[in-house]
Simulated assay, not measured.
Amino acid sequence: MIITNVNLVLEDQVVNGSLEIENGVIKAMSDTASQLPQAFNGEGGWLMPGLIELHTDNLEKYFTPRPKVDWPPFSAMSAHDAQLVGSGITTVLDAVALGDYREGGKRHENLDHLIETVVESQKRGVNRAEHFLHLRCEVPHETTVDMFERYRDVPAVHLVSLMDHAPGQRQFVNVQKYREYYQGKYKFSDAQMFQFEAEQRARSEKWSGANRAEITRQCRERNIPMASHDDATLEHVAESHELGMVIAEFPTTVEAATASHNLGLKVMMGAPNVVRGGSHSGNVAAHELAALGVLDILSSDYYPGSLLDAIFKLTDDERNQLDLAAATQLATVNPAQALQLDDRGVIAEGKRADLVLAHHLHDHTYVTRVWREGRQVF
């Protein structure tokens, strides 16, 4: 297959030309248009590597579209997969939460079905994107290590992150933001909210340190890549580096992000943070880190369509030095390298033909075609 009349978004530049695919990989590229009549005409759009998503909670929304509503698993997976591919994402780590930070929470009851569905749908070859698993370990909980041990050896597990959402630290240094978030989410009264805060602080003090040490030890033994989460201080960063983290997910301060980047951790921020112009929790804005040169990876987090939007928003932002090629790396080659997925993430000869064609129409950039391993999936 030949794709012609496109702007090829390469690692370090954008070149108008054409591209040839054979047996699911990129065979050749040219800076001239193809004259062959069978070539697909990209009509001047941007041809980018397929986007790589390391942290999305999107699948849970399809499994439980409303409270107390459980959707049939493969139907939920199919809808989730279609949304991701329609957003230009060809490789995804579906994030599942281990440990329940709310007394009586039901989230863990769907875990077996959710993980089994991700694995089985990929095995059956029915997914459009390629799906792996990201285990999000809520460390301030007595069940977290047991739950991690239940799933740690599933071959699809490609990333483990460790998080502590207790109030007064990390993501929720601002306790008022914590109350706004959880009262809005769980409809707590003021009295229930204060009780919830006290419980979470107590659990964090009792369980976080020991669980963090044990889970990271087991990950190092198995060579599973790890990510810190919401690091806020130099002490947090030093601990994450010592424990062997390769990614710093959503650091909350410039200080923590800069220190992480300088120590070799890939700093990941939310694409919704870019699109909205700041953090919904009141923490550091992603565009600030981009301007400082310490932003390495973007994640769509809770909104799949934000990933492509954020790439173009950063490109148009005069506060940083990112051109389209550099901004695209944040959602392609950089996450691929962090997980040692060396066969994808860049348009180059011999790499997988995971590709996204996008066009700018009416002040918005739209995904118009997607290929995974040379097969059109959107």
Score class of each variant (00 low, 15 high):
E130S: 15
K187G: 14
P49I: 00
E149F: 13
E138L: 14
V275K: 04
M48H: 03
G282L: 04
H134A: 08
E43R: 15
V254P: 05
A232G: 07
E242C: 12
H55E: 00
K313M: 07
R124T: 08
M29Y: 13
G282W: 02
A256T: 06
P225F: 10
N273C: 07
A238V: 07
M268A: 12
H287M: 13
L322A: 00
A348F: 04
S204F: 01
E242R: 15
H360M: 09
Q200P: 04
F196E: 01
E109S: 07
G104P: 02
F63T: 00
A290V: 11
D296K: 08
R66C: 02
A285M: 06
H360I: 07
L162R: 06
N223R: 15
G244Q: 09
L47N: 10
V294K: 05
A259H: 03
N58C: 08
M163Q: 07
E120A: 13
G44E: 01
A76N: 07
E239Q: 15
A353E: 01
A156N: 04
T91R: 09
P67S: 03
H364S: 12
E53W: 03
P37H: 12
L292A: 09
N273R: 04
V92A: 11
E22G: 08
G350A: 14
Q218T: 11
I347S: 06
G42E: 06
A338P: 13
M1R: 06
A326D: 09
V118M: 01
T143V: 08
S299V: 01
V69T: 10
D57I: 06
T216C: 13
L355N: 01
